[in-house]
Computed example of a mutant assay.
Amino acid sequence: MTEPEVSPKIQKKFRKGDLIKVNRQAYENSLEALASDTSLPEYIFEGPGELLLVKNEYCQVRWRRPVPDVWLRSDQLEEWVSSE
C-alpha cells in the first residue's frame, strides 16, 4: 500500500515589526469570521498593522489607532504596501 501524497501547506512567514493588512477573502471564509462580529472596521483591510509577536501560525497585530491588539492567523494576513 502506498500512502497518499500530502502536499505541505505553504505558509507565509512574517517577522516581528512587519507591516501587514488583513486579506479580506481569507478572513471572511474562515472559522474565526463565523465566530466574530460581522461588521469589521475597514482599517484592518487597508492597513498598516504592525506585528508585535509571531507564535506558530498566529500573529499579534497592533493597529495605528487607539484599539486593542488582536491575534490573527498568519494565513489571513498579507504584506502591506504603501500606496504613496
Rank of each mutant, 00 (worst) to 15 (best):
M1N: 11
M1W: 06
M1T: 13
T2L: 09
E3W: 01
E3A: 05
P4F: 01
E5M: 01
E5T: 05
E5H: 02
V6S: 06
V6G: 04
V6W: 05
V6F: 10
S7A: 08
S7Q: 11
P8E: 10
K9G: 02
I10Q: 09
Q11A: 07
K12T: 15
K12G: 08
K12L: 14
K12A: 13
K13P: 01
F14R: 06
R15E: 14
R15D: 11
K16E: 13
K16C: 14
K16L: 10
G17I: 04
D18I: 05
D18A: 04
D18G: 05
D18K: 03
L19S: 05
L19M: 09
L19A: 10
I20W: 01
I20E: 02
I20Q: 04
I20N: 05
I20L: 06
K21S: 07
V22R: 06
V22L: 05
N23T: 04
N23A: 06
N23G: 06
R24M: 10
R24K: 15
R24I: 11
Q25E: 14
Q25M: 07
Q25H: 09
Y27W: 13
Y27E: 08
N29M: 03
L31C: 01
L31F: 10
L31I: 10
E32H: 05
E32C: 06
E32G: 04
A33Q: 01
L34T: 07
L34H: 03
L34C: 10
A35L: 14
A35P: 01
S36P: 01
S36F: 00
S36G: 07
S36C: 08
D37L: 03
T38M: 03
S39Q: 15
L40F: 09
L40S: 14
P41Q: 14
P41M: 15
P41R: 13
E42L: 13
I44E: 05
I44H: 03
F45K: 14
E46M: 12
E46C: 09
G47C: 08
G47Y: 10
G49D: 07
G49I: 06
G49A: 09
L51W: 09
L52P: 03
L53C: 11
L53K: 15
L53Q: 15
L53F: 11
L53S: 14
V54D: 05
V54I: 12
K55C: 08
K55R: 15
K55A: 12
N56K: 09
N56Y: 11
E57Q: 09
E57H: 13
Y58V: 15
Y58I: 11
Y58Q: 14
C59Q: 04
C59P: 08
C59I: 07
Q60G: 12
Q60F: 04
Q60R: 15
V61Q: 05
V61N: 04
R62M: 08
R64H: 08
R65E: 10
R65M: 12
R65T: 12
P66F: 01
P66G: 02
P68V: 08
P68F: 00
D69Y: 03
D69Q: 11
V70R: 14
W71K: 11
W71Y: 11
R73P: 05
R73Q: 12
R73M: 03
S74C: 11
S74Y: 00
Q76R: 00
Q76C: 03
E78M: 06
E78S: 00
E78L: 02
E78W: 00
W80E: 01
W80M: 05
V81E: 03
V81G: 00
V81M: 02
S83Y: 05
S83P: 02
E84Q: 02
